[in-house]
């Protein structure tokens, strides 16, 4: 029962802060609301007994990606209130389109019976030990390839950030 209440609490906070990301006038408030969303999602991961992913999620998203966003907002001095907005009609159309997408997703999944087979509170696959065993045996090759992806991303970011002197 407790986990169900926790699920509803985390979902409500996540959805409200996700909406606030879009409604906040200043970009920096949006970034902070997004951080709140990420923390509630980490709570969801713990609820699903995926401890490894919860920790990685906090380190990568709340630690690295949010710092990148905050640095961009502060370095570029982007924290100007509502300087450019789409017209009200465009916002309305966007909200209608997104709402239609939500309805289509819900309508599709309504007719599709998802049997709840396992119990996430009893599974042990999300623990670091078990996930690490799978990662380093079955998925060793993609794991090593992702390091090349990171290297190329790093080189690309440095190349983009470099000011060319003429």
């Amino acid at each position: 029962m407790f986990s169900t209440y926790l699920f509803f609490f985390l979902s409500t906070v996540a959805l409200i802060s996700a909406v606030m990301v879009l409604l906040s006038k200043k970009p920096i408030h949006g970034v902070l609301y997004l951080t709140l969303t990420f923390f509630t999602l980490a709570g969801h991961y713990i609820l699903l007994n995926a401890q490894f992913l919860a920790v990685v999620h906090i380190i990568v998203y709340a630690g690295a990606i949010m710092v990148l966003f905050l640095f961009t907002v502060m370095l570029l001095n982007l924290n100007i209130e509502g300087e450019f907005q789409k017209s009200t009609l465009m916002k309305f159309v966007a909200a209608i389109a997104g709402g239609m997408l939500f309805l289509v997703l819900i309508g599709t999944l309504k007719s599709f019976d998802v049997a709840t087979v396992g119990n996430p509170e009893l599974t042990q696959i999300g623990l670091v030990k078990n996930l690490g065993k799978t990662l380093y045996s079955e998925y060793l090759m993609p794991f090593e390839l992702s390091s090349i992806l990171f290297l190329s991303a790093m080189v690309g970011a440095v190349m983009l950030g470099k000011t060319t002197k003429k």
Binding site: H44, Y45, L48, N49, A50, F52, L53, V56, H57, V60, Y61, A64, I65, L68, F69, T116, V117, G118, P120, T123, I125, G126, N130, L131, T134, L135, E138, Y139, P142, S146, L149, F150, A153, M154, G156, A157, L160
Partner: peptide
């Protein structure tokens, strides 16, 4: 992650890990 936990299949969570890797690189670029 939810499907992976309910189906007791670690492949889903490994996949989420790789999505996080790609997302980090994507945000940096």
């Amino acid at each position: 992650t939810a499907f992976s936990a309910y189906r007791n299949d670690p492949a889903g969570q490994i996949f989420v890990f790789f999505i996080m890797v790609v997302a980090a690189a994507e945000v940096a670029i």
